[in-house]
Amino acid sequence: MHHGGEVAGLAMASTGPDRDGLELDVLKVALGPVLPGWPTGLVLRADLQGDVLTSAELAWLDADTRPAVEPDRAPQEAALDRLARFLDVAGWPTAARDARRARNGMAERANRDEAQRLAEAVTRRVNRSRTLAWTAGGIGGRGSGGDVLDRVRRWCDMASGQLVEDLPATSLKDVAALVEGAEIGSARLIVASLDLRPVQAASASEHVHA
């Protein structure tokens, strides 16, 4: 069975130092490219010790083969969609459902007023939720742009139809710094709260080449 530390064709976890001063197993794990609530194609390769990411590296899978332009959508619809996906990760199915209903209502254009009312209701609910503030607050806050909660509230503003100025794009390196040392659930929330697009990453690397 054992061939150079392999069992059933797969390696066992190796050990490494931990922040608690112990020598413990480090598990190499990939999060993405297909993970609910996350941008498709984003891969987070992490070292996992227990439930904490001790190192993280992010990349876009096949970034150059993707269509460069995303389908054109109203910013409000896009914001509702992003909000719904974050709420999926945060484990809030009823709010995510309402956000999607509002988005669909806007896309159909038949019942815009009702969709707008629904969008305002769901964003108010998310904005005011003390539970969300307590469970998702205070993580992913290094650098500019505030923490997870600030970013979600910004989306809520966009989703309810307010105009919000664009934030500077976050590079994958910054994201890696944010999720390093985070619990796996926090890391999922942090990445889900960011507006990451493969287009930016691809064009940025082209810029470097040129």
Partner: peptide
């Protein structure tokens, strides 16, 4: 999540 696992998950 779409990639092949590199290691057995069962660890310390």
């Amino acid at each position: 999540s779409g990639l092949l696992p590199q290691q057995h998950a069962v660890s310390r």
